[in-house]
Design a protein around this nucleic acid. Structure first.
Lengths: 339, 339
DNA sequence: TTGTACGCGTTATCAA
DNA sequence: TTGATAACGCGTACAA
């Protein structure tokens, strides 16, 4: 109703009988202000309802207190948990999250432009795919970037990753120990860097155990794509006894499809493994054997590294790699004798 | 590496041989600029890599192009889908999402203070709980607010809601039609406004059908809380034949617990209903009968209303109510004869 | 410790 | 249509 103008530091200064800069100094850490005037300023500020204007501050300090987080729907990556944890860590460091979604934009250039105009202090990138050129762009603009679960070779962007190779090798070895010979690798969408990496790790791990030319199918990380691609594989003339899925959600789709439409028991008739460690993995109906990403540590590291880069941009980029935790579920067992 | 200074409109003006204000006009819709100078400015801007500084613009226009979205972990509400859709809608309207999490902050006052200093254009509130006083605070600051699935009586904050009462009545009536007499209501956490409202709707709907003094248990919207509270109920001397859950995730927990630890078949031995329409509802293992919130419509409405309020703050607050879609699953059936 | 004066990079106003 | 000039609300040298 009353469109009263916003209270500024000038208003407070006048009311408190001091200069505007005195007011300013009260709100900046480590500036010299006498106890007396500080108390005086804070009192009248409270009375008038004064709060410093972050926008004006940004303009002069060139720090926005905002970090851009770039997502894309295809990123898999347990989106809500990761985002929520990142937000928590950042708010502890007095940074806010400004959200960008690659799907909604005209493209990465569009997002980059916005990020640039908003003067964010840094970027955490979770999106499905970045090419080297895009990352180079951030460097040109002098914006620190931390990649989450994405490694870019030969570039100076820092990244925080789960060790996919180690985890997947662990899963593959178990399946091999159980005598499995007919595998199906269910990969994620080819546009996704994570999907691509996990696929390569699976192929490599299988190859190390002497399993070559393993059939591959591509899904899109969704439950339905897990179901459908598994059904396709079952109708081929190379029926698998073990399915290696690039994420948990597809693995759950495989399990449901195998049980319902093919009457298979898990793990007696079919072994299934996933990756990520989402909540549903622990549900009684599934109890999926998988690798859980250490989200707490990874998000903390991502934020710590980013802030380090913001404070000291000359610091070299770093890669931090985390081992996933093996989750022993109930979806892996010995291969049945051929009938 | 070269920490070259940021290119400003002055740099472009000088290089293009025009005034700084001419440059500015090129980037503002509807300002009068001749074709010729516009082309000239855009060309040199591109050459120099000039992008307008959004911060400086905010300071003078008093529009930040940012909308605060307030979440809290207890909000249930299909967090990722809603947030992703809101982000999409807002980016279409050229607004960015600035994220706030009530859990991480010292409290709502803290968040309100930050929102205020950041000069956001508006607020969309998804958090678990708001008291009237907090909402009044937004009004004092003249910040438009849209509440998502939260109605606040007698206040001028707009809200976009799913019609819980209608949906829950529908579910209750079906259970009643099937002859159920021994119910269990599994409510969400008492701090959550949504949980509270759904609980009241359930009690009311049951009462309308002559079922009074129905036992109530409180969970926290999680799978495990669904399992555990159901197990408790089974160990009481009032074993239910139908469970009405305040959200889908708890309902799934109930189903798993009933099957695994009590050997019950769904729906032959036990009927279960949920609310929300999350993805897992459609999984083969569950096929939960539930009410699906029309997220697409609701998020679109939330954004439309917010932008309307931003453009015309004097407009009255409005409430938009959406019917949920009944999802006919396979978790509801006739009550068994008492043995 | 305090106040004065200036600058951050833009949009808005007004006269030309 | 254009250019000079004044805000916007703050931080920060510099002098007192």
């Amino acid at each position: 109703m009353n469109s009263k103008k916003r209270v500024t530091s000038y208003d407070v200064a006048k009311a408190a009988g001091v200069s505007q800069s005195a007011v300013s100094r009260v709100y900046v850490e480590g500036r010299s202000v006498s106890k007396k005037t500080k108390a005086m300023v804070l009192a009248t500020a409270k009375e008038l309802g004064y709060k410093p204007n972050a926008i004006a501050r940004m303009l002069i300090t060139k720090r926005s207190g905002m970090v851009a987080v770039i997502l894309s729907s295809r990123a898999n990556l347990i989106y809500p948990e990761v985002l929520s944890l990142l937000n928590k860590r950042l708010s502890e460091k007095n940074e806010r999250v400004l959200l960008f979604n690659l799907d909604d934009a005209a493209g990465l250039d569009d997002i980059l432009e916005q990020i640039w105009t908003f003067q964010v202090d840094g970027v955490i990138a979770l999106a499905a795919h970045f090419d080297n050129e895009s990352i180079e762009n951030f460097k040109v603009h002098n914006i620190p970037v931390v990649l989450y679960n994405r490694r870019v070779s030969g570039h100076s962007a820092s990244s925080v990753c789960c060790n996919h190779e180690q985890g997947i090798r662990q899963l593959v070895n178990i399946l091999d120990d159980f005598g499995h010979k007919r595998f199906l690798v269910l990969a994620g969408p080819s546009e996704s860097d994570v999907a691509q990496e996990r696929l390569e790790c699976a192929i490599k791990s299988l190859s190390l155990k002497g399993h070559n030319d393993v059939p591959i199918k591509y899904g899109d990380f969704s439950y339905d794509s897990g179901r459908l691609t598994f059904a396709e594989a079952m109708h081929s003339n190379n029926v698998p006894t073990a399915v290696i899925c690039s994420n948990d959600t597809m693995a759950i789709g495989v399990i449901d499809e195998a049980r319902k439409n093919f009457g298979l028991r898990i793990p007696e008739d079919l072994s299934v493994v996933g990756f990520d460690g989402v909540n549903a993995v622990f549900w009684h109906s599934y109890q999926l054997t998988t690798i859980k990403q250490p989200l707490e540590q990874m998000t903390k590291a991502a934020v710590d590294i980013l802030l380090e880069q913001i404070e000291s941009p000359e610091n070299p980029a770093q890669l931090r790699l985390w081992s996933g935790a093996f989750i022993e579920g109930n979806t892996v067992g010995p291969v049945r004798n051929e009938q």
